[in-house]
Design a protein around this nucleic acid. Structure first.
Lengths: 165, 165
DNA sequence: TTGAAAGTCTACTTAACCAGTAGACATTAT
DNA sequence: ATAATGTCTACTGGTTAAGTAGACTTTCAA
């Protein structure tokens, strides 16, 4: 049930880019203030730059990122963080979420058991698929950013309160 | 997010053995009537016998199965179907359920991000891990058998009613 | 108009892992 | 004894994961 490094790095990079998006002055042109270069992401997230390059390119070809070439260029989100789900990112980089193909929505294949409808394994794996998709398809980049922020705040609250109590 | 063939075959075999367990006369000795031979499972479930051999051995060494050697021997569940979860089986054959190790209960490893507590990826992957474990650790072999039975019944109901309506 | 700084694209590499096969061995019932 | 079973270990061929390399293109700015 593993997420590959591709998937992991891709998600980290997208979160990084979502932060840039949010921090960019609004009202500015599409790319301005939101472009981030591969090497900056690679450095911050500790990802091999050449590997990240491929990953971002894949994400771009899938329509999740836009890019600007040349000096001052880089990558930026193709859509606001609210409308990019982690499920989408993972599917692009790691393929179907389903543990076995006979319960996959995006890459269904019959598994060859005599009766798929009444296959115990299939029914359970469908639950697993739905559980995974339930999380990943309902979490978008904005949710992730918010969660980081509130977790940080909670931590600050705790440390500032402890000495008082 | 894939389940390996090892995992898939192992689950199918365990469900097969659970059926044998349930069909065995109760009150009989531990093994009697419940032993099933590798080649029978392999045939029914269309699994390469030599591969299945390894899988069952692994499951035995993990304490989920018992076996009887020699003529008339075979494998049988070490515990009643109610007390063997699919989560346990999958962990034995495929390792941790968690998508990344920094959210794994059975094989935790730090992922090296500056602040694990406030890592957005980690928080979301923890949700995913919990979603998977929620299904797999709360589904046991008896649940699977019951579900197969009720699904079959529903199908029969449908076919017998359709001509009437 | 040139060159440096970015992304683009394709091929390659190395190691690990997956799925399966092979075969010698141990145990048990008849 | 011997045939039917499980036990154990090694091997293999193919695929994938993770990363590296390098030539190419586009853009900006001096």
């Amino acid at each position: 049930m593993r997420l590959s490094k591709r998937g992991e790095y891709g998600l980290r990079a997208m979160i990084d880019l979502a932060e840039a998006f949010r921090n960019s002055p609004n009202g500015s042109s599409e790319a301005a203030g939101r472009v981030v270069q591969i090497k900056d992401i690679a450095e911050r997230e500790k990802i091999p730059a050449k590997f990240l390059e491929q990953i971002l390119l894949t994400l771009k070809n899938a329509g999740l990122l836009h890019s600007k070439m040349g000096i001052g260029g880089g990558y930026y989100l193709a859509h606001p963080p609210e409308s990019i789900t982690l499920g989408h990112i993972v599917r692009v980089l790691d393929g179907p979420l389903a543990p076995i193909r006979c319960v996959s929505q995006m890459a269904y294949e019959p598994c060859g058991c005599p009766d798929e409808e009444a296959c115990g394994l299939r029914l359970t794996m469908l639950d697993v698929r739905n559980a995974i998709a339930g999380v990943l398809d309902h979490t978008n980049l904005a949710n992730v950013l918010d969660r980081i922020a509130t977790t940080r705040t909670q931590m600050l609250d705790r440390t500032s309160q402890e000495p008082i109590l």
